[in-house]
Simulated scan of single mutants.
Amino acid sequence: MKKQLLSLLLIAQFGFGQSGVPANPYYNGMNWTLTGMNLKSALATKITTTHTNFLTYSQDWNATQATDLNPTNSNNVLLLYGFSSTTCPSSTSDDNDHRERNSMSNGGGNSCEWNREHVYAKSLGTPALVDGALSSADSDAGEDAHHLRSCDVDRNGNRGNLKFAAGSGDSSPVTGGWYPGNEWKGDVARMMMYMYLRYPSQCLPINVGTGATVSTDTNMIQLFLQWNAEDPVSLYEDNRNTYHGNTTNTFAQGNRNPFIDNPYLATVIWGGPVAENRWPTVFLSSQSFLAENAVSIYPNPTNSNEIEIATEEEITKLTLVSINGQIIKEIVNPIFNQNTYKINDLPQGFYFLQINAEKGSLTKKIIVN
């Protein structure tokens, strides 16, 4: 428990990388106390500055053949929007609905081949995405491997540039657009969130999806938040992310999709349905966070070896931890007197105070002189 709590507090306050969650050193330096548009901006900076290898469109073939492999059959790639397990060609099934195909059957002119689906349809970008850049200076969203997925040639054509819309069951055209299918809707949502952060003016969610928008960010649609929560991350998605985050891989971009690493980041940024939280030691509350001004601590710094905590929130636990990870005090269901609680006999030092309440949690720094 000490190690987990220390990880939470150090990451939250200073962004130190830990061997725990988030395990990948990719997130060193992130400040996990940020929420809303501040967290969105910080993640956008992270995925942009770490995008160091700009792939050409021909190299995207190689990347897709490496990243889109079926975790249970490494000879085949999984096909976005696919759902049938029959073999192509087949007399009993539409040949464009297959879920996987041999990884070497890539192309574009045969109904039993697969090609690269621009999940953010090129024509919907502002400006439209291109996929024939000559150099990294010209490269844009059209060649970003994080939204290029293997897809049946014909099914790719069926989707075309239709916007994503609500539906159920297998992938198909629906009123108002294209439903990607129950298995793929979370993948689509997380890709669209990544593209929005990476290309914030070119790849707006409202241009590629339908439905109501989020009140705090009118470029984000609620449908993607719903899909992100309803369809958890798969091993297939994790494998893609791991490949691109490792710059020793020849066709890796160097950056990751944070919403695959933890779908709950979308909840912290935009709210909506609560998505899977894969970093419980970073985000202790699965529902919400207390506002910074919801709790006051005074005096801070203190010269009297004591502090008073003032709040109108229903506090369930107070945990004081030293910079070295030692739990100094842990007070369950503290009894407040006129909305204040005093902690005394504090030794000199620097501390983190984790405040858990009915409505969420908050971490404060404490200095005892």
Rank of each mutant, 00 (worst) to 15 (best):
W178N: 14
D140R: 02
Q253E: 09
T242G: 15
M220G: 00
S84A: 10
K364G: 05
G186I: 01
S172A: 11
L197E: 03
N24L: 08
V274I: 14
V153W: 00
E100W: 08
V321M: 05
L43C: 00
N31Y: 12
V233R: 05
G29W: 06
V214K: 05
C151Q: 05
N300I: 03
G271D: 06
S234E: 13
G272P: 04
G245T: 04
T247Y: 08
A229V: 09
D94W: 04
P127V: 11
D187L: 12
L204E: 09
E312S: 08
A189V: 09
G82Q: 11
I260A: 01
V119S: 13
L204R: 09
Y196D: 02
T267H: 10
H147W: 14
S171T: 05
G142Q: 07
V295F: 11
V188C: 11
L353N: 01
E313F: 03
H147D: 11
S285M: 07
F14M: 08
M193H: 11
E312R: 04
P258L: 06
V332D: 09
V77Y: 00
H146R: 05
N356T: 06
M191Y: 08
E237H: 10
V332W: 02
G169T: 08
S91H: 10
N110L: 03
S74K: 15
G176C: 15
S234N: 12
K359I: 09
F251E: 10
F14V: 10
Y179F: 07
N207T: 15
N305W: 06
V188R: 01
D138Y: 10
P273S: 15
N102R: 12
L235V: 07
C203A: 09
R159Q: 01
H51S: 09
L69T: 01
D187C: 13
A294P: 10
V77S: 06
L34E: 01
N38P: 01
I355P: 09
W270N: 07
M37F: 03
G132S: 06
S105C: 05
A121R: 00
G142R: 02
A133R: 08
Y196Q: 13
T35E: 10
V295A: 11
V77G: 06
N255K: 00
I331K: 08
W32E: 02
W32A: 05
N38Y: 01
S85F: 10
S90T: 15
T35A: 08
N293E: 14
N75L: 12
E313I: 03
I309Y: 12
W227D: 01
R256H: 00
H98F: 14
T72P: 03
F83I: 06
A121K: 09
D138W: 08
I206D: 04
V282A: 15
L5C: 08
S285I: 02
N356R: 12
D187G: 10
M37C: 00
A252M: 10
M193G: 03
I260H: 00
Y27H: 12
H146V: 04
T87N: 12
D154A: 05
W61P: 02
K46S: 06
N110D: 14
K342P: 09
M192G: 03
D217V: 07
L284F: 13
K364C: 11
D345V: 05
T35Y: 07
T216C: 08
L346E: 03
S172Q: 07
L134Q: 13
G349D: 11
K40W: 00
F16I: 11
G160Q: 12
S322N: 13
F352W: 06
T86K: 14
H118W: 13
Y351W: 05
M30H: 01
T216D: 06
